[in-house]
Simulated assay, not measured.
Amino acid sequence: MGNISIWQLLIIALIVVLLFGTKKLRSLGGDLGGAVKGFKNAMSSEEEKKAIKEDTTDNTVNKTDTTAAKANTAAEKAESKDKQ
């Protein structure tokens, strides 16, 4: 009891097609597919944003280190010129 046979599924499908029509079911399927695709794109873009944010944070640290090194080099050059 509780098992649904293939014939019962076919009868249910036929009733659904008769009630809603093929055009409405086709548009419903397209809308559902578009929603799933949009959800996947949103999930992947969130992961990309996180990756970009991490890369940006790493690059900012590297740029800060490079800028500090350049400033130290410039200060050392200025001191050496003052000594001469």
Rank of each mutant, 00 (worst) to 15 (best):
L18F: 13
K81H: 07
L10Y: 03
K49Y: 12
S45E: 15
A51H: 05
K23R: 12
K40W: 01
I11A: 12
A78K: 07
T56M: 08
I15A: 13
D55R: 15
G30R: 07
K83S: 15
M43C: 08
L9A: 09
Q84P: 02
K37D: 07
T56A: 09
L19V: 05
A68M: 09
G38F: 00
V17R: 14
G30N: 11
E47H: 02
E79G: 14
V61N: 01
R26E: 04
L18V: 11
I6F: 03
T64S: 05
K37G: 06
T22M: 07
E76S: 15
M1I: 06
S80D: 08
A51R: 11
V36C: 03
L10H: 03
N41H: 06
M1H: 08
K77E: 15
R26C: 02
K53P: 00
V16N: 05
I6G: 00
A74C: 05
I4V: 15
E54S: 11
G38V: 00
L19Y: 04
K37C: 02
R26V: 02
E48S: 02
I4D: 02
N62A: 14
M1P: 04
N3Q: 11
K49R: 15
W7Y: 03
N62S: 07
L25K: 01
K81N: 10
G33T: 09
I11S: 09
E54I: 07
G34H: 07
M1Y: 04
G33F: 06
V61E: 03
W7G: 03
D55P: 01
K81A: 12
N3Y: 04
N72Q: 09
G33Q: 11
E79D: 13
K24C: 05
K23V: 09
D65I: 13
E47A: 11
F20K: 00
I52C: 01
D31Y: 03
I11R: 06
K83W: 14
K77T: 14
N72A: 12
L28G: 15
N3T: 07
I15G: 04
G29R: 06
S44I: 05
D31F: 02
Q8I: 05
S44T: 13
S44P: 00
M43H: 06
E79L: 14
E54M: 05
S45V: 04
D65A: 13
E47C: 00
V61W: 00
G33S: 12
S27N: 15
A75I: 14
D65S: 10
L19P: 00
K50Y: 01
T22E: 06
